[in-house]
Amino acid sequence: MSFKKRMLKQRIAFLSLSIVSIGILFAIGSIFALILVNGLGVLNWNFLISITSFDFKGVTHGGIGPAIAGTFMVTGLGLVFAVPVGILAGIYLSEYRSKGKIFNVLRMMVANLAGVPSVVHGLFGLAVFAVLFKFGLSILSSALTLSILALPIIIMTTENAMRDVPNDLREASYSLGAKKWQSALLVVFPVAASKIMTGVILASARIAGETAPILFTGATLYLAHYPTAINQQFMALPYMIYGLMTTSINISASTNFAYGIALVLITLIALMNIAIVIFRSKTRKNS
């Protein structure tokens, strides 16, 4: 084949690649655009803070205040459980590892935990937190369920962040008589902290948007007030989208409402992602 022909082949190949890629990217972009356009129409201050109500035809009125509060509460509480355990587990995998298969098995189990379908987590949460521990259908049960989802994400980022810390800092602290945990927590962890932070934000973005794990562990479609205690059922943004789209009588009105919620949810998650990008560029500059 002549040089010209080969270059032509490359051109055609790359051109068709580009067309397909731009098509996919366009599809993804249009999802953002659709949510923005459809959601902006419903969005106002009242929508964000007031309580939801339904009229006799099943049309949704009011706002999503309790759902925003509920999502914040389960996510926050879930992190309270997941962050300490996840970080310590990541530290264990990175600092306490020794040769031998057992650590590879442990690591693989973390990856597997990350791959467990979220609806299975929901079943587990129902069986253990709601029924066995008698926490009932509540913010607490849902938060605990979500914390199990967040756990592997936090463990994996912590392990990688700790491993990236140069070894000579560990040697320096050991040479001063530091014990393993002192070296890990006082020297290595502070260096890895900002990278670990990105993992924590990633985990919160993930659990804030989950529906299946809270579906039968505590979320409810309608609550006449803001949540006040962790043993109550709660409204949540993702669950509300699902509920409005599948149980409503007046589809077109609830669709608009659902887009408003989707816009709020996506904005929240996008903000978290932007925080991650900023954190990352900062750590890059420092090292």
């Binding site: 140069p166 040697e171 050991y174 040479s175 001063l176 008589g177 530091a178 002192q182 006082l186």
Partner: peptide, 30 residues
Amino acid sequence: ELRKKIGMVFQKPNPFPKSIYENVVFGLKI
């Protein structure tokens, strides 16, 4: 205990990414 009595300085300078003060007192604090 051994490392408290026998200190070490390495080939490449390896201060902690902390203040000068915190570097020096690290051994005492732990």
